[in-house]
Amino acid sequence: MVNLHILKQSTIVHLCFAISYFTSGLILTFIQAILYFGLKPFNKSLYRKINYYLAYSFYSQLVFMSEWWSNSKLSIYIKKDEYEKFYGKEHGYLIMNHSYEIDWLMGWHFCNTIGVLGNCKAYAKKSIQYLPPIGWMWKFSEFVFLERSFEKDKETIKYQISELCDYPDPVWLLMTPEGTRYTKKKHEASLSFAKEKNLPLLKHHLTPRTRGFTTSLQFFRGKIPVIYNIQLAFEKDSKTPPTLTSLLYGKPVHAHLYIERIPVENVPVDEGEAAKWLHDLFVVKDKMQDSFFNTGDFFIESGVERRESFTVPPPIWSLVNALGWAVVTLTPMLYYLMGLLFSGKLLYFSIACAIFGAFFILLQKSIGMSKISQGSSYGTEKK
């Protein structure tokens, strides 16, 4: 009998993941490209409905690792009446802390449970759009790509938000106002900046950058009805670190996800007041994170109204999708590569080894990109 634990540790299995994921990504982005240039100019609504499933098919292969491969747990803290009435049924603007290597994946994990995974959008660096296949997927899915030049980015934000608000189905647009992942070095730089500007000193977050939020707010007000304030935390003393590597090796993590639904009309119209609102929000988020790290509970020390946690069984479609792509991609690819390996010819053998090596490097590079140590220097570079 196959030992599942050993199987999940196998480099060969991980390589099969890589072959399936990257090959399917290229197939899906090729289909996207055809539809982007051939259908979107004539029927945006139909293009976006089809693209939902293309994006879902790609993203859910990673969600599969969280939901099924590693059997990770997601404890959700939401008002139950709001969850049933609103979640997955309206456009939403997400404000989330950016503290972990897989915070984005836990967000996707949740989005999959409410049926908006294929329409998850985010702000991203413009250079990412040229990175296959994920960057191409995001480009064709109309993500908001920024150059970190305010004058250029303002026009981009205005145009892209207008486009996203025109979607026929609910869209969730993610912003991480901290701008980059939390590290000790970045936190020290953030504290220095906050002291200089007389802003709140945060213990577990970087000082939020308000300009992107206030600029976006003026364009989505009246179009996106709510802001979702999301706070993600993992136990500090967990034996399994919350990383992509842990999930790949089948090691479960336990994420705690608090979400507060805030009507946009509750946010001040004035730009300065809206910026202060965001800073005040991060003060509360910081208290929640501090409470969680001290007590294992968001609410005991934060003063935030308690919400009982619940879990949602993972939808089976991420499992079906991952297995489907494994069959579709691995069957011909492995047949072809095995033929090269055992052809008895050095050239063909070398080609097969090179292809396997390329997929392995892609896998390691992708994991490396998610590591906090490889994150952006945004916020620490000298200007």
Rank of each mutant, 00 (worst) to 15 (best):
I76N: 06
M137C: 13
L363Q: 11
N321G: 08
Q289E: 14
L94A: 02
G324F: 01
A124Y: 00
S216W: 10
L94D: 04
K287R: 15
G339I: 10
V116Q: 09
S10A: 12
Q289S: 15
Y335M: 10
P332F: 07
F145C: 13
W172E: 03
S291H: 06
K236N: 15
D169G: 02
T210M: 02
S24F: 04
Y56P: 08
L164I: 01
D153I: 06
L217Y: 13
F42M: 02
T113Q: 15
E308H: 13
E196I: 00
G344P: 10
Y100C: 11
A124D: 05
K203G: 11
K365S: 15
P133G: 12
E265Q: 09
R307V: 10
L334N: 06
L247D: 03
K203W: 03
N43G: 04
K195Q: 05
Q374S: 15
A275F: 04
S309Q: 03
A275N: 01
S216D: 10
C165F: 08
G107D: 07
A189E: 14
N71W: 00
M106A: 14
K8G: 09
S246G: 10
G212L: 05
K203M: 10
T311Q: 04
F145R: 11
L7Q: 10
P225A: 08
E84I: 04
L191D: 05
Y159C: 12
S366D: 14
L62Q: 14
A326Q: 15
A275R: 05
L247A: 01
R307Y: 06
Y182P: 03
S66F: 14
G368H: 01
K154V: 01
K186M: 10
F292P: 14
H254P: 06
K85I: 03
V327G: 01
G368A: 03
R209S: 01
A18G: 04
R209N: 08
W68Y: 15
L244M: 12
G379S: 06
S141Y: 08
T180R: 00
W317C: 04
Y53M: 06
S318R: 03
A352V: 03
I372M: 08
G38S: 12
W69H: 12
R221P: 06
G107R: 00
L323F: 14
R307K: 13
F145I: 13
F310H: 02
Y93A: 04
H187W: 00
E178I: 03
R306K: 15
I12M: 05
S70Y: 03
L323Y: 13
I102K: 05
V312G: 05
K125S: 11
I372W: 01
G107Y: 01
G296S: 05
N294G: 10
D169I: 10
R307H: 07
M333G: 02
E265S: 12
F299A: 09
K73E: 15
E265C: 07
R306S: 15
T295D: 04
V269S: 02
E271V: 14
L362V: 08
Y167R: 01
L201T: 07
K126D: 11
K382M: 11
A124N: 04
Y258M: 06
P315V: 02
Q9M: 13
Y52R: 12
L362I: 04
Y47S: 09
E82P: 01
N97F: 06
S318G: 08
S149W: 00
I95K: 00
R148C: 13
P315Y: 02
R306N: 13
Q61L: 02
A274Q: 07
Y21R: 02
E163P: 08
